[in-house]
Amino acid sequence: MTSPSSPDSPRPRGISPADLALALAVVALGVFFLVETFSIDVNPGYARVGPRFFPLLVSFGLLGVGAWLTVGALRGERAEPAAEEDADPDAPINWRSVGWISLGVLAQVLLLDRAGFVVSSALLFWLGARGFHSDRPLRDLAVAVVLSVVVYVAFTRGLGLTLPPGVLRGVL
């Protein structure tokens, strides 16, 4: 599945900070689950197995795989990024693209109830397109608005779904 790495240069050795961070994040998740498990109230019941038993298993499971990953990361193992369509696994992560899309989702979260579905979704679409390096912002904007309006009308009129109208209350 993973594409062969560039044949000319051997992989750099040493600990990869990113891989170590992931391993420690899994350990941290395990610790979180373990701590939270002990705050679950327990009632007596006939099942003998209470509400803490499975959470305990899962916590230990997470701690186990986390520890295993950590050992691997300290030995210098590193994960090969997945090869997806249109994605170049060996390229460095373009954080700006991630930022554009995150900003779009943030717009949807913050503006959906206030400005309404059409405005927030159009923004999400437009910012999402930014994240994919679109160089035609006006076309994107036109498509974004048309799509949002069509979806809004189709779902609220056609299916009776309630979506926040926001600033367009009474207009659509």
Binding site: P81, E85, A87, D88, F132
Partner: peptide
């Protein structure tokens, strides 16, 4: 998110 972060090829 992943595809955007490692987009290959020409724009658009």
């Amino acid at each position: 998110l992943y595809v955007a972060s490692k987009l290959r090829g020409v724009q658009d």
